[in-house]
Amino acid sequence: MSLESKEDAMVNKDEFKPLIVAFCCNWCSYAGADLAGTSRLNYPANVRIIRVPCSCRVNPNFVLHAFQRGADGVVIAGCHPGDCHYSTGNYYTRRRFTLFSNLLDYIGIEKDRFKVDWISAAEANKFATVMNDVLEKVHKLGPNRKLRDARWKR
C-alpha cells in the first residue's frame, strides 16, 4: 500500500480506530517493545500491551475475551523458539496457538486478526513492524463483529 493510499484509508475510515491487544512476554517481547520506545520508533497508539511473564502464560481464553470485549486484533509475542527465559515455554505457545488459530478461523474470526510472533529484546524494529503490519491488515478488515459482547461498549 503506498503512503498516499494509506493516508486516504486513514482519513476515509476516520471513525474506525482498530484496537489491538498485545500480550508480550516479560523477557523478550516486552523488552523489545521497551527498546522500540527507547529507539523512538513509531507504531500507532491503538496497540495496547499487556505484560505476561511468558508467552505460555497466555490462555486462549484471554484472546477470546479480548475479542469479546471489542478488540479488533490480538497479538501474542514471545521469545524466539529456543530462547525462552523458561527454556520451553514458547514451544507450548507455538503448539497451543497453532491449534487455536484454526478454531478462530472456524468461528469466523479472520486469520489476519490474530498473530503469534517471536520478538527478541533486541528486535525493536521487528516489534514496530509486526504491530504496524497487524494494524494495517486489521484496518483493511474493518471492526471485528464476531464474538463481540453486545453489552460491552468500547
Partner: peptide, 29 residues
C-alpha cells in the same frame, strides 16, 4: 513463575500469583 501450567489446567485450579487469570482478564477489560 512462567505460568505455563495455568493454561494446562482444565478446571482452572492452578493460578499464577501476581499474574492471575482474574488480573489479566481485568486488564483486558
Amino acid at each position: 513463575g512462567c505460568g505455563g501450567c495455568t493454561v494446562t489446567c482444565r478446571p482452572g485450579a492452578i493460578d499464577l500469583k501476581g499474574f492471575s487469570n482474574r488480573q489479566i482478564l481485568a486488564e483486558v477489560d
